[in-house]
Structure formats: structure tokens, C-alpha cells
Design a protein around this nucleic acid. Structure first.
Lengths: 344, 344
DNA sequence: CTGAAAGCGCTAACAA
DNA sequence: TTGTTAGCGCTTTCAG
């Protein structure tokens, strides 16, 4: 019916096809399609017309092999369901938009082993750079990063040794400052609620910093409660109930993230608990979800989008200049006191 | 210091390096590294040892070019911040895990133009398949999909013409059934609240179906309210307030997604509005976030994870069998009445 | 079980 | 401004 010969169907088009269709050498076709070098307008026209008519899509695999250049940036994060990482990704995408680089995402599910596998897989595509969440990697992963010969940016965290560049915040400090703020506000019986964190190193560091901050005032945590999986909002409720029933004297709950904090807040409101008078609450991340709650949960902005942007900018910069050199960007998270910490 | 010659630093390793280090031909090294063909255990050992010692990472670009096989699946979605898509992606990742295929994500921001660009970019890497959200594409994008010669799975929606395979739900029907349920429950003064939807075709179709369902009972929407951007929870509150102040007689609010619905629910609870007696509420998606709210919002599960799984399974199946043929999977979303629709 | 030759589709480098 | 030649690093195919 449609003048297709059988073979038109299954073979994908090559430069050669465009070359033949336009009567121009493959090399010139290549130049036109990449906007490289000088090509006469007439030739350019003919080539573009032919390419479009045929529906030619260049083969980047061949291009990358020949040019030894790949416009991909590997981005490796622990999770997509965390709400935090999509924002980082948005920051990265935005920043990379103009640079001709394309982010490619890999997810580790907070597993160091999976991280190693994903990293291996991605490096085998020879990307122009790697953005990877966290500073904790398996020895093999670290070796791969060190030997990749491309810019590596570790993000989210700055507390520890770094492979190359780093963009993030100090979670220890974030915990520390939250503790000081809480103590200053007069709370004394403080409990922590968070994820089970064998591999969530940032939450762990926040807790460490938090305990250090309490220790400055001679205070120890009254209780801790951990969860994993499930609806964070619901878990926040359940954990809050558990802690309060175990320790009626508790006067502050520090949550490792805003979602469980929001669950706790809703629980308190439901049960007529005076917040922040009788009980103070604080979370972490500064997710804009909180804006719609009946009361604003105290939190600390993790600078997620900014982290993504800055990391991407480092990769884009290096891919232009060709230089590889470790940069260090430590952002300062801002405490958002909200309505759940009483005034000192 | 560390016996590295200068050049060791900047060149990435090739098969040849492993070949020389192990005293085995490149071909045999290749066989070992891919677990292909028969290789003696002794040789295998030597090769693996050498590869590991050198820290060799195969070059998939060259491999893909030579073998004409790429283990990548292009996944194209409108947004990451929508909360809905990360779940689809999880489903895809899970299903692809065992298949040796790797998902690669691209984001369009609900723009058909961007979709076209992203698609072009991804096709130029010659993936083994494409999973793409929605049925609405630019003519050029549609042409690319049709000519790609690989399995294409359009997801989320089944209301319209399809390129190849499709996995999704009928949003028209979802809206229709929600309308019928609401009418059956006795509500009559009904308003719609949703995203501005020039390009959110699924929300548009739900609204169309919803209006059709109301029309069956001779009912017309009392009011509509649209938003874009910002914290969905907060927007839900604001829009709810706006609609209720414009139309005090309204007795039901249908939200185009659960987040704004949750905002509306919180608003009503704050203001002592009798839900579902005086005012009924319903959203769409069935996000598990809702589990933690003071009351469960009526909603309809969009089968997000399942859609991801099924779509991935189609690609994986075809990549094994080599056959390309359109499959059609229509999932049935289940109404979750929650606590915000009164019993008929 | 192992190796040699050819080439995947494109681009760098040079020539015309 | 355009064309020619020689690979990029790997895998396919075929021969030993």
C-alpha cells in the first residue's frame, strides 16, 4: 500500500541514507546535523530536508564512540519516594538545561551494594560527570569514582571525606543547632523519632549532632523511636502515640523528617495536646507540603534544589573547561521556627 | 609515589589492557566478562583477576555499537514532583530488575514540545523500548514512536488512539463513576477543583467523564476552580475557601488530585464544616499519604505501581521474544469511599 | 576452548 | 566549503 519496500520497516536509518538522499557526503551531513563547521546554506537546506523527510534520528552510540564525548551526567540517589530527591533532581535538570548535558538517574534504595552496581552500570556508559548522594560508598565504588577521570560531585552531606567535589550541608550541625534552639526554648524532656537508619547516614548524623547539642546542656534523650516503610504521615502518628504513652513527661519531639513530623502534629491536634506549650515539635527538610497544615511545623530547610543546581553547575563548568578539581560548597540550612516551638 | 606512570591517570582502560595484563586474547576477555561461550576455568580466573586488579569498567558504548543491542528502556513522564510518577517509576524499576534492562528517565514538564525533544534525545541512544506517559503527542513525536522499530508502551491512559501497546486506566470512566457515586449518595450542588489543564489531558478527561456522569442525572457543575504551581495542600485550602465563599450552597467538592483534596479536607475540619454530612469531598489517585489524615478522603486508586509493572513487563517480554505487537491492558481503578462521602 | 578479521555508525584530522 | 581516510572499543563470525 504505502510504497514501503519490506526492508524500510526494520532497519534504522544511518547517515549514509541521508547522504544518499541528499547527494551530499556523509561527513557534510554529519556537520549539518551537529551545526559544526561551515556548510553552505544551500547544502544545509538539502540535508535538513532529507533528514526530516526520512525521519532520521542520529545514533549517539556511534557518535559517542567516535568523538569520545558523551553528554550524559550520571545522577545517583537513594530513593524517589522520599520527596526530597525529586527536588534535587529538578534543580539538576534546570541547571543542566542550557549546558547540552543530560542527566540520567539511578536509584539505590539506600543500599550501598546497589549503589555500587548502579555506579558501575552508569560508568560503563562513560558519562561526563557523576552526581552522587552521600559520602558513604563501598570501597569498590569509591575506587571507581576516584579512577573515573571525570568530575564527581557528592551531594547532600559534607560531614566526611570526599572523593572530588562536594555540595551539601552539615547534618551534624543541623542537628546540633536544632538541639540548641530547643534547649534555649526551655524544653528538657526530649525524644527522637526517625527512620531506621542503618544506611541513612544523613539522618544518623543529624541525630548525632542533636545529641551533642543536648549534651552541651547536660541533657540526654528521653526516648527514641524508629520506623521503616509505610505511609510516613501515618507512621508519624503511630510513633508519636507510642512515645507519648511510654513517656508522658516528654515535652519535645524531634523528627528525622517533615512527613513523620506532620503526622505527629496532626496527632497532637487531634488529641488536643497543647503545641507548642505542653509539647514542642520539629522536623527536618522544609518541604513545602507543610504550608497547608493547620500549623506550621518547625523545620530546617535542607536546600535541596540549590544543592542540585550547584552540583550540576560544577559538572557543567568542568565539562566546558576540561579541568577537574575538587570544589567544596557548604550550604547553610536555615531554621524555620514555624508554630511548634515556643518562644524562649 | 604510587608507581603510576603519568598516562595511567587519564586514559580509561580497554579490553586490550585486560588482554595484555592477563595474557589472553581480547576476544576471550570479552567472553569472560560477558559470561558468553565456553571458557576454561583457569582462563576465566586469570581474566577476572586482571580485570578486577586494573579496575576495568567495560565500555558499553562500544559494546552497544558492535552488538546493536542496548539494554536501556526510555521512560518519559511529565513530572517528578507530582508524587504519582515516582510510584510508576518504582513499578518499572522493580519489574525490570531481573530482565537485564535499565530504565532511563526523561521529564517533560507537561510540555508536548519538551516531550518531543526528550524523545528524540532518548531514541538517539537506541533503547530497547519506550514507556511514555499519555496518548497525546506532537505529530513528529508520534512519527518517531511509530518508526522507532522497538516496543512502545503508552501508559496511564487508555482513552484514545494508541501507537503500539498501552497500559492504563480510563480517566473518563473514572470521572464518570465518581460522578455516579456522588449523585447516588444524594449530593446535588457539585463543584470541581483542579489543576489548570491545558496539557494535563488525564485530568481533563476525568473532568469530562465527571460532567457526563452528572449530566445523566440532569446535573451541571455549580462551579470550577483551577490552580497551578505552589504547595498543593495549601492550594487545596485556598481553592476550597474560594469556592465555598462564592457558592455557599455547594454540597460536594471533586478535586482533580488527592493533595489538593487533602488541603480541602483540612480546611473543612479547621472550619468545623460537617464532612460528609453538609459537604462531601473526593480526590483522585489513592496516594498513601492520605492514610495519616484525620479522616480518609474518598478517592480512586490510579493503579500507578501496577501500571509501571505491566508496562515494563511488556517491554521485557518483547525484548526476549523479539516480537513487537500491540498489547492493550486496561486496569480498573477501585473507588475508595473513605470517610468523606455520606452513605446513600 | 581460543583467536583473527571485519565492521557497527559515526567523527577527528587532514586533504582538496 | 566539501570530501577522504582512519579509527573509536567492542562483538560477530568464522577458523583453528
Amino acid at each position: 500500500m504505502s510504497g514501503n519496500t519490506p526492508n524500510d520497516q526494520r532497519r534504522t536509518l544511518t547517515l549514509r541514507d541521508v547522504s544518499e538522499a541528499s547527494g551530499v557526503s556523509e561527513m557534510t551531513v554529519s556537520r549539518v546535523l551537529r551545526n559544526r563547521g561551515d556548510v553552505s546554506d544551500a547544502t544545509r537546506e538539502r540535508v535538513l530536508e532529507a533528514a526530516k523527510r526520512l525521519g532520521y534520528v542520529p545514533n549517539k552510540i556511534a557518535g559517542a564512540l567516535a568523538s569520545q564525548r558523551v553528554n550524559l551526567v550520571a545522577v545517583i540517589i537513594p530513593s524517589l519516594s522520599n520527596l526530597v530527591f525529586p527536588e534535587v533532581l529538578s534543580g539538576i535538570s534546570e541547571e543542566l538545561e542550557e549546558s547540552g548535558l543530560q542527566p540520567v538517574f539511578g536509584v539505590t534504595n539506600y543500599s550501598a551494594e546497589r549503589e555500587e552496581m548502579v555506579l558501575y552500570e552508569m560508568l560503563s556508559w562513560r558519562p561526563s560527570g557523576v552526581i552522587i548522594a552521600g559520602l558513604e560508598h563501598t570501597p569498590a565504588a569509591r575506587a571507581m569514582l576516584e579512577n573515573a577521570g571525570i568530575p564527581i560531585v557528592e551531594i547532600m552531606d559534607v560531614d566526611g571525606p570526599v572523593v572530588d567535589s562536594v555540595v551539601g550541608i552539615s547534618h551534624k550541625r543541623a542537628g546540633l543547632e536544632m538541639a540548641r534552639t530547643i534547649v534555649r526554648a526551655g524544653y528538657r524532656k526530649i525524644a527522637f523519632l526517625g527512620t531506621k537508619m542503618p544506611d541513612d547516614h544523613r539522618a544518623r548524623k543529624r541525630l548525632e549532632g542533636f545529641e551533642a547539642g543536648l549534651a552541651e546542656a547536660g541533657i540526654e534523650l528521653v526516648d527514641r523511636e524508629f520506623y521503616s516503610g509505610g505511609s510516613a504521615l501515618l507512621k508519624g502518628r503511630e510513633m508519636t502515640e507510642a512515645v507519648l504513652s511510654r513517656n508522658p513527661e516528654v515535652d519535645f519531639l524531634y523528627y528525622s523528617n517533615d512527613m513523620i513530623g506532620a503526622g505527629g502534629l496532626l496527632y497532637c491536634l487531634d488529641h488536643g495536646i497543647d503545641v507548642p506549650g505542653r509539647l514542642g515539635l520539629a522536623g527536618f527538610n522544609g518541604v513545602d507540603l507543610l504550608d497547608g497544615l493547620p500549623r506550621r511545623l518547625a523545620t530546617m530547610d535542607a536546600c535541596r534544589r540549590e544543592i542540585g543546581r550547584r552540583a550540576a553547575a560544577i559538572i557543567a563548568g568542568h565539562s566546558e573547561s576540561g579541568v577537574i578539581g575538587g570544589e567544596r560548597v557548604e550550604l547553610t540550612p536555615v531554621l524555620q521556627p514555624g508554630d511548634t516551638i515556643r518562644q524562649a
